[in-house]
Write a protein that binds this DNA or RNA. Sequence first.
DNA 1: TATTGTTATACTCTATAACTATA
DNA 2: TATAGTTATAGAGTATAACAATA
Lengths: 144, 144
Amino acid sequence: MGSKPGSNGAAIAELLMVSRQLLRRLRDEWYDRELSWSQMSTMSRLEREGPATTADLARAEAMKPQSMGTTLAGLEKEGLVERRPHPTDGRQVLFALTGEGLAARRRAEEIKQAWLLRATADLSEAERQVLVEAAAILSRVGRK
Amino acid sequence: MGSKPGSNGAAIAELLMVSRQLLRRLRDEWYDRELSWSQMSTMSRLEREGPATTADLARAEAMKPQSMGTTLAGLEKEGLVERRPHPTDGRQVLFALTGEGLAARRRAEEIKQAWLLRATADLSEAERQVLVEAAAILSRVGRK
DNA sequence: TATTGTTATACTCTATAACTATA
DNA sequence: TATAGTTATAGAGTATAACAATA
């Protein structure tokens, strides 16, 4: 495969560009969608890591606190997350998944994964494994 | 790594979610940016494949023709692409990169790639190679 | 004075709908 | 009648700026 100097950067750039394209298709073809990508990603995080503040979540998702505020407001209006007072700091607000939020997230996640499995159905097992490993690596990059 | 049944879909989904996050950071930290992702992606395609119609480009980028029209209008206003009449079909319009468009694209591409190389600097060579291969595979998935 | 969160506003990207021109 | 493109409008997602409350 490409081993020209500098071509790694180009390939990774291509990875991001293609991801945008797949996200557009996934959104288009996912008719029953009730959650935005940011909402899904935020709910995943709340499920994995437990209650968190707006600022924490914004940092983790690499977005501004105000934007995360909007994301959480949407979830709260639908009853998918709820507020809890911070035990010691009156300024902070902890957000937690509700039972309904957990259910909605799992429903959405299943649909999304089914679509992705279909989209990658004609790949070899080895190729699919490369995608799985890439996901783990990129996820580590994204966390920093 | 994860080999539970169904975990492939989850991992690939994670790949897309992390890509969104990296795209946000890349856009935030890329101060001199003069082009949108869609504009860059479209110009790449015009450079690789030569002049194309709105409809062709829309299909290739998995977006609606009207949306591609907006993308191209922005590029045209900046003098980065130009129109050419279709030789046989008076309805169609071919768009082609201008010299300035080519230069702008290469400038932007360099900045983007430099950022990505920095972001992945602490990965091992093997890990980086996985990302490179994943890009090639996903790109193939995206083209279908 | 610094930090957390909220409210108001605007910008970017993409979509849907209605229209024009050519085939 | 079908297809390529344009114009108008709207929505989602995110940003910036100004503000309020608490530390």
